[in-house]
């Protein structure tokens, strides 16, 4: 059974792998966005802060806008790039 599986690589794992790579890319993007705005904009002294909607600009861009963008990105990626696969084993392999 193991050999059979090796001869015919499971398409579903290719899909799973591709989606894992997308997940890593999203997480890296998320981290860079989060880190760069927080410590880039927030690194100066509080007297020089600018404010967006009353919140410190670094916080707004890093945490509020960043969250919204990530939520939209995840929705987009799952809707358009992710592929539905059957989770059950193909017939014949199991009784």
């Amino acid at each position: 059974m193991e050999k059979e599986r090796k001869r015919k690589p499971d398409e579903r794992f290719k899909i799973a792998n591709r989606e894992a790579v997308i997940g890593v890319a999203l997480a890296v993007f998320n981290f860079v966005w989060w880190f760069a705005f927080a410590y880039g904009l927030g690194g100066r002294t509080p007297d020089n802060y600018s404010y967006v909607f009353g919140l410190p600009a670094w916080f707004f861009y890093s945490c509020v806008l960043g969250f919204i963008i990530m939520a939209l990105l995840v929705i987009f990626v799952v809707k358009f790039w992710f592929v539905e696969v059957p989770f059950d084993e193909e017939e014949g392999e199991q009784t």
């Binding site: 579903r12 899909i15 799973a16 989606e19 894992a20 997308i22 997940g23 890593v24 999203l26 997480a27 998320n30 981290f31 989060w34 890093s62 945490c63 960043g66 969250f67 990530m70 995840v74 696969v85």
Partner: peptide
């Protein structure tokens, strides 16, 4: 807020 990533990251990598 750095935890935002954990949910989708884990599900995307392990889920399927």
């Amino acid at each position: 807020m750095s935890q935002v990533a954990t949910g989708y990251f884990v599900l995307m990598i392990l889920g399927k």
